[in-house]
Amino acid sequence: MTEAKKSATPAEPRHDEDDERLHDDLEAERRLGRIVAVGLPVATLAAAVIVGVVASVPSALLVLASGALLGAIALLWASVRTLSGDAPLPEDLEILAAQSHDVDDLAEQKRRILRALKDIENERAIGRIGEADYEEMARRYRDDAKVVMKRMDEREAPAMAEAERLARAYVDKRTAAPPRVEAPQGAVALPSGRRTCLSCGVSNEPDAAFCKKCGAALARSEGTDATV
């Protein structure tokens, strides 16, 4: 049934309540997914126990097997629908995916030095290293840590400045102009790289050229990955 609704949506006119309905649909599908994920195993187990008690063990095994196969069907359905882009993703998955970053050499170094400091602190607490040795090593590690932290600060300084500038610009705009943020062209780039259609408000893939719902052209906007 959700399927039918989905296929019908693109043909309908673009309205705000339509948007809401779509949102409700997605929410409903998520809820359905959650219900199936919990309900199917529970129902299968319960049915198996009942059948096992009332009828026989073999029948209970069959019930379990059919539950497993039903689950397989549901899961493959979910998999294919997710792949084709029809099914909604868990709310924060995209944001989390956008947040994941590459291996940070400096952060790794810093982590190691902090660990080392903690280790020698522990060793001193149980008397494994003498006070003099501890002082000497701790100072050395602290110096190293400071160097790394300074480097990290230096590295992040431009981004911090940029964020500062953006925030200031935003605040200025809000105090000066009406509180509506307009993007220059047809699309707003989300931090995740996804593009929101300005005509209907639907979130599109980062590489989309046209809105998947209303078909409006999503013009290339600069600064897709503004770090805020």
């Binding site: 080392a116 280790d119 020698i120 060793e123 290293i129 040795d133």
Partner: peptide
């Protein structure tokens, strides 16, 4: 009996 990093 040895500590991390260094044992006095």
């Amino acid at each position: 009996l040895f500590g991390w990093k260094k044992t006095s």
